[in-house]
Amino acid sequence: MKRQIKRSVLVVLLVGAIGFVANAAVDTSAVIEQMSNISALAVQAKSELSQAAKGNDFQAILTAQLHVQGTEAALKDAKTAFASFNGAKTEKEKKAAMKKIKAAYSGALKALRKSAPKLAPKSGKTGSAYVPNVTDSLWKSESARRVANDRFDINYVAGGGTFGDRDATPE
C-alpha cells in the first residue's frame, strides 16, 4: 500500500515537472519576435509622419510626431532590455528583461493610439485655429516687429520723424 502511494506521488511529481518545464524557460524566439514587432511599429509611425508632412496637415503632423516619439521611446527601452537579456546569466534576469520588452511593446501600441490635442479657436472666438507666428516670437519689440513687417514709414513717424526728412541733406 505504502509502496503504491510512493509510486503515485512519484508519478505526480514527474508528470507535473514535465508540464512545468514545458512552460518555465524564457523563450528566446518570443523575445526576438517582440523586438521585430517593435521595430516594425516604429517604422509604421514614421511612415505616418511622412504622410502627414507631405499633406502639410498641421494637426496630423502633431499627432504623428507624438506617435513617433512614443514608439521611439519604446524601441529605446526594448533595446536596453534586449541587451540585458543577451547578457543575462540566470533565468530570473532573463524573465525580468522579457517583462521589460513586453512592457515596451505595450507602450508602443499605446503610443500609437494617442492623438494630439486639437488646435481649436479660444471660446467665444471664431475663425481658424491659432498658428504660431515665427516673426512674433523672434522679434519681441514693437518697433522690431514693425520693421519685420516692412512698415518702415509708420515706424519712422512713431520715432518722431516726418516725411521728407529722410531726403533732406544734413547741411
Binding site: Q4, S8, V11, V12, L14, V15, I18, N23
Partner: peptide, 27 residues
C-alpha cells in the same frame, strides 16, 4: 492502487495535460 492513489494520478495527468496545452497554445 487505492482511491487516493488514483486521485493523485488524475491530478498528475491533469498537470501534464495543462503543461502540454499551454506549451502548444503559444505555437
Amino acid at each position: 492502487m487505492n482511491r487516493q492513489g488514483y486521485l493523485k494520478l488524475i491530478v498528475g495527468f491533469s498537470l501534464m495535460l495543462s503543461g502540454v496545452v499551454r506549451a502548444g497554445s503559444p505555437n
